[in-house]
């Protein structure tokens, strides 16, 4: 079987197995989804309230803009987030990583497949919720047709970037026995610089400049900004460039860290 065909077959099989797995735990899936949805809703309620109390707008964002922003943010965040760095320590410590290493396929494929399957499954719930939020909070868009089209590559690149970056972060578990503190630091930086707490446009100029230099904006905020029609053609192209550059950097970093990490891997207790 040619290599690409095998890869496709692996993804298909993993997809089926993963669907079966998720359905085996319907309850936890629902609770998990609720948690995922609550965060943007909280921000949405807070910011629309602030906007109304300020006479309708905060820094150019009206209540309807916040509704559009946080709903799109929820969608993008849901599609781009990964959880493997939260599990890697556990995986290595308990020896669950060993079987993955001995398969004739890179372990990252396992996680990509898991990730995509989970996204596909949960997206069926996220879309109706998003529609509900957009309508009930009176979201307003100034998006043109080309910006809708531009959103798709921005989203796909954001998914690739966030996955590669966070999978590399996960590999820290080869060196650090307790990765909780590192993950927490990453999580806070992510929350702040990716526009999850508030739109980056509302941040001080310094923070905006830093956010542009860091990768986080390109993982979440950039596709959202594109979808809301807040970026011109040049800004969108620059954004793609930034995403591609960060992906290249993350892939190189991943390969270097991976090589060093598996040399260090001592399969403790595995």
């Amino acid at each position: 079987m040619p290599e690409l065909g095998r890869l496709r077959a692996v993804y298909a099989a993993k997809f089926r197995a993963e669907i079966a797995l998720q359905f085996a735990y319907r309850g936890s899936l629902v609770i998990w989804l609720l948690g995922l949805l609550i965060q943007p809703i909280v921000y949405l309620v807070v910011w629309t309230t602030v906007a109304r109390s300020q006479g309708g707008a905060v820094g150019g964002f009206r209540a309807g803009d916040f509704a559009a922003y946080f709903t799109m943010l929820m969608i993008v965040n849901q599609l781009t987030f990964t959880w493997h760095f939260l599990e890697f320590e556990w995986r290595i410590r308990n020896g669950f990583f060993s079987p993955l290493l001995l398969r004739p396929i890179h372990p990252a494929h396992n996680d990509v497949a898991e990730n995509l399957t989970f996204k596909l499954l949960t997206f069926t719930v996220v879309v109706p919720v998003a529609v509900f939020l957009l309508i009930s909070f009176g979201a307003t868009f100034e998006t043109q047709a080309w910006q809708v089209a531009a959103f798709v590559p921005a989203l796909v690149l954001a998914m690739a970037l966030r996955f590669t970056f966070e999978w590399t972060l996960a590999l820290a578990a080869f060196w650090i026995t307790r990765t909780g503190a590192l993950n927490q630091a990453y999580f806070v930086a992510m929350l702040f610089f990716s526009g999850q707490v508030a739109p980056l446009a509302l941040m001080p100029a310094v923070v905006q400049a830093i956010a542009t230099l860091l990768p986080f904006r390109w993982m979440v905020s950039f596709p959202v900004e594109t979808a809301l029609g807040r970026l011109g053609p040049t800004e969108v192209l620059v954004g793609y460039g930034a995403q591609l550059a960060w992906i290249a950097a993350a892939v190189i970093l991943l390969r270097v860290v991976w090589r060093a990490g598996i040399r260090r891997y001592s399969a403790v207790g595995a």
């Binding site: 079987m1 095998r6 077959a9 692996v10 298909a12 099989a13 993993k14 089926r16 197995a17 079966a20 797995l21 085996a24 735990y25 020896g95 669950f96 060993s98 079987p99 398969r103 004739p104 396929i105 595995a270």
Partner: peptide
Amino acid sequence: RNQLAWDIPVIDSFELNRAIYGVS
């Protein structure tokens, strides 16, 4: 150690192995 996925029927893990090892 187990290599089979804990929560799904054994045969599903077998199918995954079939794909990974490219067995016809």
